[in-house]
Simulated scan of single mutants.
Amino acid sequence: MHRLLFMGTPDFSVPILRMLHEEGYTIVGVVTQPDRPVGRKRVLTPPPVKAEALRLGLPVIQPEKLRGSSELEEIKALAPDLIVTAAFGQILPKALLEVPKLGCINVHASLLPAYRGGAPIHQAVMDGCTETGVTIMYMAEKLDAGDIISQANETILPTDDTGMMFEKLSRTGENLLKETLPSILEGTNERIPQDEELVTFAKNISREQERIDWTRPGMDIHNQVRGLSPWPTAYTTFGDENVKIWKTEAMQTDSEGKPGEIIELTKEHILVKSGDDTAVAITELQPSGKKRMTASVFLNGTGSQWEKGDLFL
């Protein structure tokens, strides 16, 4: 029986770990990120993969950093035949990549060589893509550059945000790995080198990417909002306070105004001028220090002082 080591951290990884357990694979250990403070009260909280691993009765290792750590030696001592990773959150050092005789494979949420990096789902939605997918790949020292084993496509609907796509692609990854893993263990799988000329990147989201630039085209802003929802969330500034923008719609308009100017207030939305003739209708928002709410609730309450002609910066 082959010995598998699983490495993953967020909710995306949980169904994949669960599938491996349900299929009867021998999982010698689960490696995940350390517990982190969460919420305003900063409650120390285990990552989703740790919670699932403990529920399944699997041993858990939580290195702050793998390279040169005592945990790395602990992982190597488990002598896995294959390492399976899915959104683990750290680059695996060469000393670990060389341990399993069948190699290290990764469940990556893009159709490689597109969107190598830590935020492939966010970036695909922000870029307005209508399709993405999952790649099962061999891991290499260079980030997401290993040979492709298998791929599966997934549609991005106009109404999908990043949270919805995480759920879709997690299921896609689970099913694809379930189909692909037997051939990997048998040594009959494909190995397709990536075309370096087609490589694009999706780096981790920066704070600068979260801020809305109202001079951009309206559809780009709308895609930015849904690409950053439900985390880390796009934001704009009204007066001296930041306002999180959770949900928008793109609407054609012939209204005049400066980019960022409120050009219409209705019961359902706050319509804001962009850099072109596609306005951005804010339908859900979160003012500083308040809860997420619909535009309707906001305008009937504390937002009632907002007026046509006011400006977001």
Rank of each mutant, 00 (worst) to 15 (best):
Q33A: 09
D127R: 11
E179F: 07
W231V: 12
D195W: 00
T278H: 07
Q62V: 10
T135Q: 08
I212A: 11
T26L: 13
A114C: 00
E74F: 01
F166L: 12
V225S: 03
E64I: 12
L313Q: 08
T85I: 04
T283I: 15
E197N: 05
E249G: 01
V28Y: 03
G24K: 12
T253K: 00
W246L: 15
W246F: 15
L17G: 11
Q224A: 13
P120D: 02
I205M: 09
F298N: 09
L265V: 11
G239T: 02
G173C: 09
D277Q: 10
R40K: 13
V49I: 05
L78W: 03
R40F: 07
V280H: 06
I136K: 04
K178E: 13
I212Y: 11
P15K: 13
F312T: 00
H2D: 14
D277W: 02
V28E: 10
K258Y: 04
A51K: 15
I262H: 01
Q305H: 14
L157Y: 14
E196A: 10
M139A: 03
T237Q: 10
F238M: 10
K76S: 03
S70H: 14
N153V: 13
K267S: 15
L102I: 02
G163E: 12
N153M: 09
T85D: 00
T215D: 04
R40Y: 03
T9P: 04
P15I: 11
I83K: 00
